[in-house]
């Protein structure tokens, strides 16, 4: 249960490609503010900074949104799990989580998916140990981590496959690993 409160101020955020002004208390953490504005793909499973469920991209970096004062995020570019793909057109990491049965109750999954996307962005061909280290601060109570780890390795394979298609001269697949801020699921209107 993250922290809230303090005097309200307006902050400017770009969330999943959409610019918006939100009101935030000076002591509000970013996870609470995002959730208040309907971005329910940001989960809160601890009292701050220890479960990984609230991970989002802030200016391209993975952060636990609960561990950051909303006012400190003023002016930044935020991407939640909802910006990565839609149910009908999943990001390869999301698709791999579905196909590998890496999802049980799902409460930890948005944070895991964000972390996995970041890992594969910086390290497209990780070893199992590297995947485990990357996910080490994402706690999951349901899966024993086995299938999430398998899913990330599988996603790496799939994304490599896509790249090799492009390298072979085929049409590159336009799945942004992350960072293409203009791409949200439907222009932002249906988000979460």
């Amino acid at each position: 249960m993250p922290k809230t409160g303090g005097n309200a101020v307006d902050i400017e955020l770009t969330i999943n490609g959409e610019r918006t002004t939100v009101e935030a208390g000076s002591a509000d953490d970013l996870a609470t503010v995002l959730r208040q504005h309907g971005y329910i793909g940001v989960k809160c499973g601890c009292d701050g900074g220890t479960c990984g469920a609230s991970k989002v991209f802030i200016d391209g970096e993975v952060r636990m949104a609960c561990g950051m004062a909303a006012t400190d995020a003023d002016g930044s570019e935020i991407r939640t799990v909802a910006a990565l793909g839609t149910q009908a057109d999943l990001h390869p990491v999301q698709q791999a989580f579905v196909d590998n049965f890496a999802v049980q109750c799902g409460f930890c999954i948005p944070g895991m998916v964000i972390q996995a996307v970041a890992l594969l962005d910086s390290n497209p061909d990780p070893t199992e140990q590297e995947v485990r280290e990357a996910l080490d601060d994402n706690v999951c109570r349901c899966t024993g981590y086995q299938k999430p780890v398998e899913a990330v390795l599988d996603a790496a394979g799939r994304m490599q496959g896509e790249q090799s298609v492009a390298a072979d001269g085929g049409r590159p697949v336009t799945v942004p690993p992350h960072g293409d801020e203009s791409t949200s699921c439907c222009g932002g209107g249906c988000d979460e």
Binding site: R35, I40, V42, A82, G85, Q94
Partner: peptide
């Protein structure tokens, strides 16, 4: 068989009580 709520979960659209 694919878990029926898996896509909803990986896209952050599954609603839990607080949502």
């Amino acid at each position: 068989e694919e878990k029926d709520d898996a896509r909803k979960i990986v896209t952050g659209q599954a609603r839990y009580t607080a949502d």
